[in-house]
Amino acid sequence: MIELEGLTKKYGEATAVDGLTLEVNEGELLVLLGGSGCGKTTTLKMINRLIEPTSGSIRIDGDDATGVPAHELRRRIGYVFQKIGLFPHMTIAENIAITPDLLGWDAARTSNRVDELLELVELDPSEMRERVPTALSGGQQQRVGVARALAAEPSVMLLDEPFGALDPLTRDRLQESFTRIRRRLGLTAIFVTHDMAEALLLGDRIAVMDAGELVQVGTPHELLHEPANDLVRELMETPQRQAQNLRSLFESSPEGDA
């Protein structure tokens, strides 16, 4: 469980995140949604202290996040980066094993864990273990990125637009895989995206941010039916309009065109 209270980040005069208060329940996936510069990524990075907050508190499973050295905190939180960030001088197995190695797991346990995770993200361990990241496709690389984040059995996962840079087909497949994994492991997670459709598909609840402030938090159903303001309403209408447009396009297309 993640509890944020009055979380604020200022850069000089500019306020990136302003007094954010939010709770993510055990086993819940919360989507942090908003346009570029709304403060969603800053919020995410403050939770594992890649960015130190100006004020406010963060509690993870009841413990204050500032109570331990930052690197120890990060070893307990899985983090998936938009730019993936696999280390090119290490094999796939070594990349996945990083956090277990930092925690001092014994070699056999780590090795078993690597195989288990590769299978979980639907990659063949015998084929993948000794490869280097550059030999993999973008989708495969991010599957490894998810495996690396899960390696040390974290209680909490943070995902920063993890599928944003992938092509639509690959993104679709990874979203499906991830939903399945999350359900199976019962992960508590925060998922940052600007993609409305992704938010609706993946999120148990969605938190909409704008200009560093939290606008509304709720289930997709609540956001659709009781939008707090025009921004939320517009956000919710976009996928519906797109879906309608697509449907009419499919219906009007002449038979035998293919």
């Binding site: 930052a70 990060r74 070893r75 696999l86």
Partner: peptide
Amino acid sequence: EAARGVGMT
């Protein structure tokens, strides 16, 4: 950033 994120000192 990834190196920090996975918990390296």
